[in-house]
Simulated assay, not measured.
Amino acid sequence: MSGLTVTDLHAQHGKASVLTGLDLTVGGGELAAVLGPSGCGKSTLLRIVAGFHAAASGTVAVGGRVLDDGRSRVRAEQRRIGYVPQDGALFPHLTAAGNIGFGLPRAERKARVAELLELVGLGGLGDRHPHQLSGGQQQRVALARALAPRPDLLLLDEPFSALDAQLRIELRAEVAAALRSAGATAVLVTHDVDEALAFADVVAVMRDGRITQADAPDTLFHRPVDTHVARALGEANLLAATFADGEARTALGTLPLTEPQTPSGSGTVLLRPRQLRLGDEGVHATVTAVHFRGHDHRVELDLVADGGRRERLVAYTDTAPPGPGSSVGVTVVGAAHALTPAGEAAARPEAETATVPERTVAEAH
């Protein structure tokens, strides 16, 4: 199992800089997801690793073998890297078995194709052509074709984006299971938060051509390094805080911190919407909006803190909350996470909360 190491990678499109000193490490056998909005450079990163685009400087290595150092490049077909594009790009005139076995030595083709059809859950469907398969089945064939030559690394370029929501959830779980079963090292690029958190062992958040933070999904979600990562992983309540003795004094009271060694001073803390509990007790806030989402309610709150400062909060609750205009008590479950060091709080806009579109919210958390 070969790992991927990207060091101080710079890349351009014409005269425009796209990657600006990017670093990324993926261990052998790990599934990684690179998460970021359109235009942040994640597809360019994948294309450089695959050999489709040249690096301006920096190093790309797989299994310790340098593939691109900004001066010399290994040709794409010699890199032992599998690539699954967004649309699968199957050969329409070949069967599923023919697509998977394309390019394999004749002596091992039959056994390897049969093995991979079973791995991706398509046993018995090898004789079907792409037009006879569903979208999800076609992506399974594309995955099997990429795995067929036993690549050192597999790259997945938003391969589930064209599928409907439920199929996307089911297929990403099946693909992750198949890759783990095969012991593959893989990198998925996506702008979908739920997809990244559910698929990967390591999630790397990308912004403006760099990796801001790469960590295990749970760590990244609950202990982001800054407000950008906090927002990138879902809706975030960001409250002004004063730190002292391993605690944070906030408009919701004095809260324990995830890392008690946080220095004294002022800053910002993160609370996820699921950490807020609504009831009769706690600090009272006014309900400004309620959105029923089937599995829960999303509640927007307005809290007036000491000194007249307003904090806009978001809570998720499984039970029906009081309606807009009602007063409700808010308590906190768990620890707050300090995001901003002392002295940086001045840059925080008044009454700041994340405004992540609901479709990107990591609701499972």
Rank of each mutant, 00 (worst) to 15 (best):
L153F: 14
G136R: 05
L94S: 11
V120R: 03
A33H: 01
S38K: 03
V49E: 03
G70N: 03
G121Q: 09
T44P: 01
A33Q: 00
G123W: 10
L147T: 13
P37E: 05
V120W: 07
P130C: 11
T59N: 12
G36F: 01
G136M: 02
F52Q: 12
V60N: 07
T44E: 02
R106V: 09
S161Y: 01
V60H: 09
S161D: 00
V60E: 07
A144K: 06
K42Q: 04
E77R: 15
L45M: 03
D152E: 14
Q137L: 08
Q137R: 06
A114I: 03
R106Q: 05
G36S: 02
G27E: 14
G63H: 13
D152W: 11
G29Q: 08
N99R: 11
V120C: 03
Q132P: 04
A50D: 13
T44N: 06
G136V: 03
R79T: 14
N99A: 09
L67Y: 13
G103L: 05
G136A: 02
A33T: 00
G29S: 12
L153Q: 10
L46I: 05
G103E: 07
A54L: 13
A144V: 09
A32K: 02
G64L: 03
G41R: 07
R79N: 13
V49P: 01
L119D: 02
H53G: 12
A56C: 11
Q86V: 02
Q139P: 05
E158N: 04
D152C: 10
F160M: 00
V120F: 07
R140T: 04
L125H: 11
F160T: 02
P159H: 06
G63E: 12
C40M: 04
L94E: 06
F102Q: 03
H131R: 14
P92S: 05
A142M: 14
E115V: 08
G39V: 05
Q132C: 04
D157R: 09
S161N: 02
S43A: 07
G82C: 15
V113H: 00
E158P: 00
K42R: 01
P149A: 10
S57P: 08
V66G: 05
V120Q: 03
Q78I: 13
V113K: 00
S134E: 06
A61Y: 11
V74W: 15
R106H: 07
L45D: 01
Q138N: 04
L31W: 09
G136F: 03
R75M: 14
Q137D: 05
G126Q: 06
Q137M: 04
R150Q: 15
G126E: 06
G51K: 13
G39L: 09
T59D: 11
V66S: 04
P105C: 06
K42A: 01
D127N: 10
E77W: 14
G123F: 07
G123M: 08
A107E: 14
L119M: 08
R73P: 09
L24D: 05
L163E: 00
L122E: 00
G88F: 02
G58N: 12
A32V: 05
A165W: 07
S72E: 15
G58C: 10
S38H: 04
T25S: 11
L24P: 07
A162C: 03
R47A: 11
G29A: 09
R47W: 13
P85Q: 05
Y83V: 15
